[in-house]
């Protein structure tokens, strides 16, 4: 486990290095939490001011597409964590397979999300573009929030897919040594799971309440 090739300065032992990597990732995630937290705060205030109209607007969302997408993302988190297990065991083949599965399942999420946006566009629910918005002004504001928050989430997921494919390609070409560099797969996984957690909250807040 503790081979010299795994260790980089200024660390004196692999455990310390792994801890530092996790600490750095958590700092980054706390930063992201503030970004999404501001959006959630705004939506909460909006629900306090316009309780009834927001609920009415929320009922126009496609609950089952969102629910299916939650299951899709949870599944991708499972394959991601299995990739980390394989990476720790030094099994490059399984790691690459699990990473590819994660990226593919992430792409399924984006495809479903795109289909959902398309349906909303056709129904005129996309403020500013397409058919005239059929509901009131405060409902339009809810849909602005919906598109901004899910859009920002989708961008995060798309970046995640890119990163997962990048690591899969490096592993496939033998540019990354496992299990010595498994901490990098772990960090990648932490980002992926964070994006999953954001959706876990976006789903009830936008669709269910």
């Amino acid at each position: 486990m503790s081979t010299p090739s795994a260790l980089h300065g200024p660390f004196s032992e692999p455990g310390q290095q792994q801890e530092a990597a996790r600490l750095g990732l958590w700092l980054f995630i706390a930063n992201e939490l503030m970004l999404f937290g501001g959006l959630f705060m705004a939506l909460t205030v909006y629900r306090i001011i316009h309780t009834e109209t927001t609920r009415a607007a929320s009922e126009h969302l496609h609950l089952w597409i969102g629910g299916a997408n939650t299951a899709v993302l949870l599944t991708s988190s499972l394959t991601m964590v299995l990739a980390v297990l394989a990476a720790r065991a030094g099994d490059v083949r399984t790691t690459v397979r699990m990473l590819l599965a994660t990226a593919a399942i992430g792409a399924v999420f984006l495809a479903l999300k795109g289909w959902e946006y398309r349906l909303e566009y056709d129904e005129g629910l996309m403020p500013g573009v397409g058919p005239v918005f059929p509901l009131g002004a405060s409902q339009e504001l809810f849909f602005n929030f919906y598109f901004v928050s899910t859009g920002l989430h989708a961008v995060h997921l798309a970046l995640g897919i890119g990163a997962v494919l990048f690591f899969a390609a490096r592993l496939h070409r033998g540019r990354m040594d496992l299990p010595h560099r498994s901490t990098m797969i772990e960090g990648l996984g932490m980002y992926w799971h964070f994006v999953d957690v954001v959706w876990v909250f976006l789903y009830p807040v936008l669709y269910l309440i």
Binding site: L23, L27, A30, G189, V197, V200
Partner: peptide, 27 residues
């Protein structure tokens, strides 16, 4: 469940758990 198991907080040192918790405190 995701943070504790999938993000390895159950295997992380106290300092790392504290850093994760700090994000929640600011929120």
């Amino acid at each position: 469940l995701i943070v504790w198991f999938f993000m390895h907080l159950n295997q992380s040192a106290g300092l790392v758990r504290l850093a994760a918790f700090a994000g929640l405190v600011w929120l």
